[in-house]
Write a protein that binds this DNA or RNA. Structure first.
Lengths: 209, 209
DNA sequence: CCAACCCTCTCCCAAAAGGGAGAGGGAGTA
DNA sequence: TACTCCCTCTCCCTTTTGGGAGAGGGTTGG
C-alpha cells in the first residue's frame, strides 16, 4: 500500500453486506479497507486507531447509530471525511446526517461505480449528494420542524401509548399532551395519531426500536 | 466452469449490495454467479433462462416481491432451490417465505461463511434455517392468523384511514369494520389501532408502501 | 426591553374509537 | 347433516381523541 492509496473504514452492522463492500473496494487498486465495524462505538474507536481517509457509514445500527457516531467523530476530528451509505429511510435521516457533518449520502441501490466516484470526490475534499437524494432533502425544507417536546410525544404515539399514558410518562397533564398532539398533527399535515405514526416512520422522524 | 460448479442467481434491488454478494460468491472456487436481477419478475425470467442451482432472494423489492417470485418459480420448477437473504423484517416474512417454498432463510447480519455453508446445504437438498431465525418462527406459532378480511382492514389502518373511510373503501358498514378491528386488536394482543399499526409493521404483517 | 417561541395548562364540545352481546347467511368440512 | 369459520350486520354504551380558544410563565435573541 503506497502513499496514494485511499484508506477506507467500513461501518455496517450487516456482516455479509459489509464483507461485500470490503471485497468490492479491495478490487480497486488505489483503495484499501483498513478497518471494519458494526456500530457507532466501534466507528469512533476505530477512527482514532486507524485515521482512515474516508469512512463509509450505515445509519441504523445497534448500540450507537450512524448520526451520533458522525457527530462524535467530527467533533474530535473536524477534517474527517464521512459518507453515509444506507437504505433510504426518509428525508429526516438525510438532513440529520448532513447536519452531523457527512460529506456524502449514498443509497444502497446505487452501483459500486457511483460509490467509488463518491469516495474519490469526498477524499478530494468535495461533497457528493446524488440528485435523487438532494430532491428528498429539498422536500423536507419548508416542512416545519417539530420541537423537542413534540418529538418526545410523537415517539410515545409510535410506541402505542394513549394520551393518558403519555401524560403520566412525561409528567405533564393530559391536556398538554393533547396540545402537543395538535401541533404535531398540523405540522405533519395529518388528521389522526395513526397517520402521524406511519408518516413519522416513513419520514424517518422516529424508528421502530 | 466445470460440472461441479454451483450455479447461483442473485436477486436484490440494492445494486451495490448485490454486487458485493456477487464478488464474494465468485471468490469461492466451486461457485459462480450466472444471473443477477433486481425484482421478482426478473427473478422468474432469469430462472427460466439460466436454471441456477441455488437462488439468493431478497424479500422487499419493487414491482414483484420475493415471496411472490418464490411461489411462481416453485410452481413452474418444483425442484428449485431458493434461499431468502434479507434484513430481518418480522416473523411473518419468515413464515411466508418458507410457506412459499424457500429452503433457507438467512439474515444479512450473518457472515459470508454461513451463507456459503447454507448454499452448499441447500444445493445438497437439505434445509438451512439458523437457530436465530427458527426462534422467531416459533414465536409466530400460537399467535393466531388474521383472516383475509382482517388483513385488509389492518392494511387500511396502517394506511391511516378512519373506520368510516375503511367502510367506504371496502364497501361494508362501519359496524363491520369495528367488528373486524375488534378481532384484530385481540389477535394482535393490543388495545388500539395505533398499536395495531406499529406491531403489524414490526411483525411484517404489512409494510409501508 | 420586547418579541417570538416553547411548554404548560383550563374549559368545552363533537367526533371517533373501543367494548360487549347477539344474530343471520354462506362456505367448507367432518 | 351438523359443525365450524368467516363475513356481515344491529344496538347500546363508555372512553378516547381531535379541535378551538385562550392564557400564564419561561427562555432566547434582536
Amino acid at each position: 500500500m503506497n502513499n496514494d492509496t485511499i484508506k477506507i473504514m467500513v461501518i455496517d452492522d450487516q456482516a455479509v453486506v459489509r464483507q461485500g463492500f470490503v471485497a468490492l473496494i479491495n478490487t480497486v487498486s488505489d483503495m484499501a479497507v483498513v478497518a471494519e465495524g458494526t456500530n457507532g462505538w466501534q466507528a469512533i474507536d476505530l477512527y482514532r486507531l486507524h485515521r482512515p481517509d474516508v469512512t463509509l457509514m450505515d445509519l441504523r445500527m445497534p448500540e450507537l447509530g450512524g448520526v451520533e457516531a458522525i457527530t462524535a467523530i467530527r467533533k474530535e476530528f473536524p477534517d474527517a471525511r464521512l459518507i453515509v451509505l444506507t437504505t433510504y429511510d426518509g428525508d429526516e435521516d438525510i438532513y440529520r446526517s448532513l447536519q452531523a457533518g457527512a460529506q456524502g449520502y449514498l443509497l444502497k441501490d446505487m452501483f459500486f461505480e457511483e460509490l467509488e466516484e463518491a469516495i474519490r470526490k469526498v477524499h478530494g475534499g468535495s461533497r457528493r449528494i446524488p440528485t435523487q437524494v438532494a430532491e428528498r432533502l429539498a422536500e423536507r425544507m419548508g416542512s416545519s420542524d417539530l420541537t423537542g417536546r413534540e418529538t418526545e410525544v410523537l415517539e410515545q404515539i409510535v410506541a402505542g401509548h394513549s394520551n393518558k399514558t403519555i401524560a403520566a410518562r412525561l409528567n405533564i397533564s393530559e391536556a398538554t399532551v393533547k396540545s402537543h398532539i395538535n401541533s404535531i398533527l398540523s405540522k405533519l399535515g395529518v388528521s389522526d395519531r395513526t397517520q402521524a405514526a406511519t408518516t413519522a416512520l416513513q419520514r424517518g422522524l422516529v424508528h421502530l426500536r
